[in-house]
């Protein structure tokens, strides 16, 4: 199971990469392998400002629909639109081409609540 040490994680199996006040967010390798073939990623909250833990989109595998929860409060500035035609990138490259959104964070102190790679590893028993 790939769990890059430079990223932060949530209990909802999302990863966060912070650069200044901009967070890039996706789902983890563990999440994509649990979901199986991902066939649809829907994000219709671009330009909206949401609080942490609010739903910013959904990811659909063949048999399941899962909500995506925002790890950090802020404005959703970008959606990886290439996922509209190639949602399978989330399976093949969850930390790279399979990224989902970018968020302009409104409260960077929330980042302290995120998990380290080691904590996340313990969570999933990897």
């Amino acid at each position: 199971m790939n769990i890059p040490s430079e990223l932060k994680y949530t209990k909802d199996h999302e990863w966060v990469k912070l650069e200044g006040d901009v967070a890039t967010i996706g789902i983890t390798d563990f999440a994509q392998s649990e979901l199986g073939d991902i066939v649809y990623v829907e994000v219709e909250t671009v330009d909206e400002t949401l609080a942490a833990d609010e739903v910013f989109g959904t990811v659909e595998a063949v048999k399941t629909v899962s909500d995506l929860f925002l790890p950090l409060s802020g404005e959703i500035t970008e959606f990886n639109e290439s996922l509209e035609d190639e949602p399978e990138k989330v399976n093949s490259d969850p930390y790279g081409d399979g990224w989902m959104i970018k968020v302009k964070c409104s409260d960077l102190s929330e980042a302290e609540n995120l998990m380290s790679a080691n904590d996340y590893k313990a969570l999933i028993g990897a």
Binding site: G36, V39, V62, K63
Partner: peptide, 8 residues
């Protein structure tokens, strides 16, 4: 068995 290597 619901899937082996992937449904697609």
């Amino acid at each position: 068995p619901v899937q082996y290597e992937g449904v697609n």
